[in-house]
């Protein structure tokens, strides 16, 4: 098991937008996200959570500093290479599910594989297996509008995992779900975490964040503090070795 390397590593990362005047969305953030860890990111609106997600998710590049995914510096990559890295190493789960409306559950799960040129047979196998694992074996041919919110989010989770990414980024994954469904989906997250998936969840909800090993509190574009949770189910000491170098 590779445990020596972080899944994602941010070193003194800053992001500045120029909207008439410079806006410092992130200011010198350093953060290690070890493999197999479960990190929650909390903070008030406009504090840089989305910017952090976009940087970790290889959707954006930092103004300064270094973002490496699985040991690779994402900043030094071309747009094309970065897209490829995103496709293979990052899985996204969104608040609004973001499934392709005209694709079935199975096709949605397979979508990321298409862009990685995974052979057809393998595609279907892995996608089906994942749908079974999220409890949707009987919903593979359903379109998103034929699925409930919880089911859609489970399809999204399966899609996020289909390319076996280094990390799954979830942005308010239960924001559109009722309490019961939320618990189901979060249980599923915990289940995959236990199976070794690296998770980062951005949330406003304390009880959602508490599912994680630790909570990174962001404030005004910087890490305010990192709160460690003694997760009862986390017995692996290595996971707690995560070092969040706050300014």
């Amino acid at each position: 098991m590779p445990g020596t390397q972080s899944a994602v590593s941010l070193t003194d990362v800053s992001k500045t937008y120029y909207r008439g005047e410079p806006v410092y969305a992130l200011d010198g953030v350093s953060l290690e996200i070890p493999r197999g860890s479960y990190t929650a990111i909390m903070g008030p609106s406009g504090t840089g959570k989305s910017t952090l997600m976009n940087l970790v998710g290889c959707l954006d590049t930092p103004t300064s500093g270094r973002v490496s995914i699985d040991g690779r510096d994402a900043g030094g990559l071309s747009d094309r290479e970065r897209t490829r890295l995103r496709g293979s190493e990052i899985g996204f789960v969104f608040q609004t599910f973001n499934l392709m409306p005209r694709l079935t559950a199975l096709e949605n799960v397979r979508l990321p594989q298409l862009f990685q040129d995974v052979p057809r047979g393998e595609r279907t196998d892995r996608a089906r297996t994942l749908l079974e694992r999220v409890g949707l074996a009987d919903r593979t041919e359903h379109f998103p509008n034929e699925l409930s919110g919880g089911q859609r989010q489970r399809v999204a989770l399966a899609r996020a995992l289909v390319n076996d990414p280094a990390i799954v980024l979830a942005d308010e994954p239960s924001g559109n779900l009722d309490t019961e469904t939320e618990a189901e989906v979060l249980d599923l997250f915990s289940e995959f975490h236990e199976a070794g998936t690296t998770l980062v969840v951005v949330t406003h909800e304390r009880h959602v964040a508490e599912r994680a090993d630790r909570i990174v509190h962001l404030l005004d574009g910087a890490i305010e503090r990192i709160e460690r949770l003694d997760a009862s189910d986390s017995t692996d000491g290595d996971r707690d070795r995560s070092s969040g170098a706050a300014p």
Binding site: G87, S88, F115, N163
Partner: peptide, 16 residues
């Protein structure tokens, strides 16, 4: 637009 965003997020290249 949103579908394009999804495709790009899951790894679709420009040429795709």
């Amino acid at each position: 637009t949103r579908e394009i965003g999804i495709m790009k997020a899951v790894g679709a290249q420009k040429r795709d």
